[in-house]
Design a protein around this nucleic acid. Sequence first.
RNA 1: GCGGACGUGGCGAAAUCGGUAGACGCUGCCGACUUAAAAUCGGCUUCCUUCGGAGUACGGGUUCGAGUCCCGUCGUCCGCACCA
Length: 833
Amino acid sequence: MSRYNALKADAHWQGEWDARRTFAADDHSPKPRAYVLEMFPYPSGRIHMGHVRNYTMGDVLARYRRMTGHEVLHPMGWDAFGMPAENAAMEKGTHPGTWTRANIATMKAQLKRLGFALDWTRELATCEPDYYGHEQALFLDLFAGGLVYRKESAVNWDPVDMTVLANEQVIDGRGWRSGALVEKRKLNQWFLKITDFADDLLDGLAELKDWPDKVRLMQENWIGRSQGLTFSFQLLPAGGEERIDVYSTRPDTIFGASFVAIAADHPIARALAETREDAAEFIARCKAGGTTAAELETQEKLGFDTGLTVRHPFDPAWTLPVYIANFVLMEYGTGAVMGVPAHDQRDLDFARKYGLAVRRVVSDGDRTDPVFEGDEAYTGPGTIVNSHVLDGMDVAEAKRAVIERAEAEGWGSGTTVYRLRDWGVSRQRYWGTPIPIIHCAACGAVPVPREQLPVTLPEDVTFDVPGNPLDRHPTWKHVACPSCGADAVRETDTLDTFVDSSWYFIRFASQPDDRPFDRAVAERWLPVGQYIGGVEHAILHLLYARFWTRALKHIGRLDIAEPFAGLFTQGMVTHETYRAEDGRWLSPPEVADGIEIATGAPVTIGRVEKMSKSKKNTVDPEPIVDQYGADAVRWFMLSDSPPERDLPWSEAGIEGAWRFVQRLWRIVTTDAEGEGGDIALRKLAHRTVRDVAADIEALQFNKAVARLYTLASAIEKAQPSADRHAAAHTLLLLTAPMVPHVAEEAWAARGGAGLIADAAWPEIDPAMLVDDEVTVAVQINGKLRDTLTLPKGAPKEALEAAALASDKIVRALEGKAPRKVIVVPDRLVNLVA
RNA sequence: GCGGACGUGGCGAAAUCGGUAGACGCUGCCGACUUAAAAUCGGCUUCCUUCGGAGUACGGGUUCGAGUCCCGUCGUCCGCACCA
């Protein structure tokens, strides 16, 4: 028997699938539908192992669904706008489009080389006008629907690169490329009203049963809904109209308040800075403080006593000092808080530092003393004390009582506050979707008329000077106002690339030329049945896509609320790290047997970590595929590690996978058609069909792989028989979604009809799933002493008798009778001695 | 700091409902085939000294019985991060 030639077979069957358009989805098929989607890649240059793992998982599911009679939509495209293309343009002088399209061509060839069952007829790239033009139309729909607005907002501004930076691009207060100190700058920016949907997005999470709990929790925290009281403190001297509004989730502790703190950029603080130099200095100090996590961790809580006082709402005679504090955020709540030191750690630290009263108002067990001692604020449940009318209530009652009173007396009201902010989508960059708005001095922001879409990016741009090429382009932005005809300018900002990825799954489902999607067709496919990608998108992308879909529903364009019914977040591909004696990182090919090949010097083998260029522990999939073939790589990606966990790449592992491909080939091609039966093997085959199906549907590929190994070994050990031949046939069908090339080659060699890609998943004979014998464990005091093989369904008495008759048990009992006998039918007998 | 997940052999792991811990793979060792090697095939591979015992991070608890449930401790990883 000849060895299986993977490279030849890969090329042949990939050509065959292409030519027959095997994986093109039919919008009009009467079959049940399955939409399987993996997060589309950014065309950075070459695919990496993470892509291979992600797309292999989706591919197995897609191919399995085809076999179980579904019309499968499994598309692929490119998240093609974004900064790396502009960086490449700056470094290499190539146009971002040239760079991006070349990368797409390379990566598409690499994906094809892996034999994924993708519908390439629906391929899309977000950087092409036939995609982003429709996105502009949708943006204008949302604009017309009142979900888009423009406001001045603070951004991170890199004064050297003359561009806005995302928070992630600010490292220790400096621009990640230029190293320049980042400034806060106010710019007019476009926002999408995601906060309108905050409740809906939060409540909708409960319905997403097939999402990981972790992701739902992350989104829940991100939305950050809290209930509390927004109320005002009247500023003294009395009679003045001025008030400070605060938000508190603990109105029950209002009698424990000992100060009010406002943000450095609160209007009252700013007004004060106009007249008082020391206040202005303090505010400047607050703003100079870093905003990175590490800096916040160590930063001291600072306050500035404004000398202002406010009146306590429950007691006109009681006044509280007003501080400006560096820990109060203008962006959250009202930008002012009431400080209750006894029941908030941060307030306690602050009060101790500035000598303010610390008054207990919630009892901690028996402790009701008015002066709060101790280093930790008490935030637990308890009875309200030292609070006049509230005394004796529990925390929840007191909250209600204070809110009721505030509402009755008109100084406050119960409110819901969110951590979630509206989505700022303006980016001062070239390589993105132009925002289809024209600014006219007379008419304001005017939408570009539909017939003028798409607003395309000009090709003649340069990146040799910093700033936005669209803004400095000589002609592009100068247009007539669509409304009044006067000279006007285009918006030169482009959309956040997260907008591009917020609806691509809809465009995959339906892509007419003249509009973003056909509603009826899109609704036939959506929601995506199974979405697979990295957990790094757990919040932003997935939340934005959920918002966008709801927004389309809100304006009546699509009757789908949740875009992704099932979500799976796969683990990373990791690898050992290697370091030379002088500390240089070494790549895997530079190392053999703990020795650096070039120098012969020993190498320090480091932790297994995520593949990264900086640690040089990446493995390029392409040469691996060229060496072992696509199936071995796919099989390895599915083996061993549970898909949600990290997968350590190893040379031994890929070789093991390659051996299995060869072994599978041998089993199914050298399989003689013998006579007679082999009932045990037949049963195993049927059980494996059932179990592998369940494993694939649960995305537990590692378990499916283990079962297939077991079946393969059993077939190898079996004598030729009709059942053995049938079991080999079953094995071939079950492995086909995972290793489709060798499966096609073997299918053809065995004379199978058509393609195995079009074959049906094997039927299960329920009679083959029942066993007439079971292995029963016999324990003494819970410890295993013997196992017995008994007929299935044997009565308890029979089990007990068989157990007591066992030699090992008789010996272990030493003639004593058990005090008690526990019998679990078909499982075990436990003798309590 | 807050929230969450996890901790099982030399390694990746499995163990459906509380019921035979370590399936399956990798590595390693022994053997067969071979002039030899590769490939392939067979066997062994949790630990301890044998009978046997111990063992799922550690310490307790519930139970006839705990990897699984409860309490506590330690450790690792992830998310958020001054959110009032």
